[in-house]
Computed example of a mutant assay.
Amino acid sequence: MIGSVQRAMRLLEAVASRSQGAPAKQLAREAGLALPTAYHLLRTLVHEGYLRRDKGLFFLGDAAERLSGSAAQQKRRSTVRETLARWSDAIGAPVYYAIYREGEIEVMGVADSPATPAVEEWADFRETGHAHAIGQCLLSQLDETARRDHLARYPVRSLTPYTVRDGERLLRRLERTARMEPVIERQEYALGAVCAAVPVTVGRTAGAIGLSLPSRQADRLPLATQRLQSEMGQVLGSLGLSISI
């Protein structure tokens, strides 16, 4: 054990428990340190940015806030991964989480297993949103201007014999899709795979949770999608899938 590190951590904990700040004497007492030792460590922590001093009181500094934010972000990522894995196990299919941010499709997480492998990304998901369920689900949540902008940057192209043929046909399909309605796609992105995606909105950001099945199990897709919606309904209120992970 390194004593100086332990003492510095006790001071940080004491400061963190005092949102209105605290003087050195109080912090030394709460951390069980001699006042000269506390002064020396406090000056060091201020110099390194972990604390800041204002009118004789000490507060958490930017460096400590960044550590706290990083830990919270890591916890959110872990929670999302665990939730996707739980849904994948319950449904018996790979589960995907994606968002539409700054004009781009971003796949944020995938949960699969050797028995239920995810669809291979043989064509860039960002450029082929017209073909897969996740992309169509995200685009269905945008307004027409944003959809046309996306398709101007990533034009429709045939990936399989089942892919939608042109942008206007896709736009008409998206117009007929209710904003929060699940999207079903059969072998449009990859031969041998059928997929579904359920919309989820966090603030103003469009998101989607999807699943895929081998095409030989296509008859399972409606029930699997319902099960995914049920699983999402039980968790999303408290989980609040983070768009910042």
Rank of each mutant, 00 (worst) to 15 (best):
G69S: 13
G61F: 01
A16L: 07
E48A: 09
L60E: 06
G3R: 10
M1N: 09
V46A: 11
R18H: 10
S19F: 01
T79I: 08
S19R: 04
R76G: 06
K55Q: 15
I2H: 11
G3D: 12
R43S: 15
S17V: 01
L35Q: 13
G56I: 11
Q20P: 00
L11S: 00
R52V: 12
M9E: 13
Q20Y: 00
I2W: 02
L12R: 01
A28W: 00
S70Y: 11
L27C: 04
L45G: 00
A22P: 05
R77F: 10
A63R: 06
G3P: 09
E82S: 14
T37N: 05
F59A: 01
R43E: 15
S70N: 11
M9V: 15
H47V: 09
L51E: 05
L12G: 03
R52P: 03
E82T: 11
V15N: 04
S78W: 10
Y39G: 08
A71Y: 12
R76H: 10
R77W: 04
T37E: 12
R53M: 15
R7P: 03
R53K: 15
G69H: 11
S4T: 13
E65R: 12
R52A: 07
L35N: 04
R76E: 15
A22E: 06
K75Y: 07
L11Y: 00
S4V: 10
A8W: 01
Q6D: 04
L11H: 00
T44E: 14
L27N: 02
A38H: 02
K75S: 10
R66T: 14
M9L: 15
A34E: 11
A16I: 01
R81T: 11
